[in-house]
Structures are given as structure tokens and as C-alpha cells.
Amino acid sequence: MAKLFFRYAAMNAGKSTALLQVAHNYEERGHSVRLFTARVDDRYGGGHITSRLGPQREAELFGPETDFLALNAARPGVACLLIDEAQFLNKAQVWALHELAHINNLPVICYGLRTDFQGELFPGSASLLALADEMDEMKTICDCGRKATMNMRVDANNRKVTVGDQVEIGGNARYRAVCGRCFRQL
């Protein structure tokens, strides 16, 4: 039986790299996969999943209106759905992905952040934490050497930002992966 997976981590843990590796493994064995990434994340241009290490590949975009059940019905024969930036899914989409896994027997593997820069769950992450059959925390490290579990937003002077919109797209210039201690002290 297929499952809904949630692989989460702080920023810079290699989530996109791992997703691209899974896609490669499926395709190397002759299986078709579908890759999705959030339309809102335009750091590398729309329609691409890009690893900080360099590998990149085209992906379909999802937004709040995306109907994964209809998309799956329109393109049978897919062996796995791979979703990057899964924190930007909405609750209804996570329920649809759960249905695809359990009713359509289609493995769905979601990669994303668990929490935002204020330590709050993203809506997609909250739903995935509730519904995923398997969850894996991918690891990365803080500057101090401890395991990084938080995402800290910083300003142009590298000072911690504590207020603002939940979603502000940015990479290493705007965010740092930090441990809980550094998140509290900085």
C-alpha cells in the first residue's frame, strides 16, 4: 500500500537534492514521476526544482487552486508524486494527497519546512504532520555546531527579524538555519 511521506527540515538541509535523487532513482528504473514545486517560490525562476549544489530540473507549479486529484486523473501511469516546498500546500491539498496515497495507491513524497521564522507551523506542514504516514526529519547544523531545527529570518545587517509576513521568499541572504538555543539568544 502506498503512503504519504513528509520529509522536513530547517533550511539548507538538502531537501531539494534528496527529492531530485528520488526522481532519478524512479526514472532510472523506468518509472514515471511527477515533480511539483510552489509557484510562490520564485528564487530560481518558476517551474524548476533547484538544489543549492547545482542540480536543477523542470517541475510543475502548484498554487492554492491546484487540484492534485484532477491532475492525477488526467495523467495515469505515474509511479510517484514528488512535491518540493510542501509547506505552501493548503489543508485541502494535503487531504487530496492523502487520498491519492490511500485510495489510488500512489506514493506521495513531500519535502518542506516544518516552521516559519517565528517558530510557527506552516499550514501545509501542520496538515502533513497530522496526516503523513511516515515523517523523516532531515538534518543540518547551526553555526554553533548543534542540530539546526529553526529558520531564522535576518535583515540586511544579519540581525534577527521577529515580525513580518509568514511568507517572504529568500535564500541564505534572508534566512539562517539555527538550533533552538541560537534562535532564542540571537
Rank of each mutant, 00 (worst) to 15 (best):
M1Q: 14
K3D: 07
A9G: 05
A10R: 07
M11Y: 02
N12R: 13
G14F: 01
A18H: 10
V22F: 10
H24D: 14
Y26P: 04
E27R: 15
E28H: 14
R29S: 14
L35A: 00
L35H: 00
F36A: 02
A38Y: 07
D41T: 13
D42P: 06
G45A: 07
T50H: 14
L53I: 02
P55H: 02
Q56I: 11
Q56T: 15
Q56L: 10
E58S: 10
E58G: 06
A70S: 15
L71E: 10
L71C: 03
A74E: 15
G77P: 15
I83G: 00
I83M: 01
D84Q: 02
Q87M: 03
F88C: 03
N90I: 13
W95G: 04
A96W: 09
A101P: 05
N104M: 12
V108H: 05
C110E: 07
C110W: 08
F117T: 08
G119A: 12
A126R: 15
D133R: 13
M138K: 12
C142I: 09
D143Q: 14
N151K: 09
M152A: 01
V154P: 06
D155M: 07
N157M: 08
N158H: 12
T162S: 10
V167S: 01
E168D: 10
C179P: 10
R184K: 13
L186V: 06
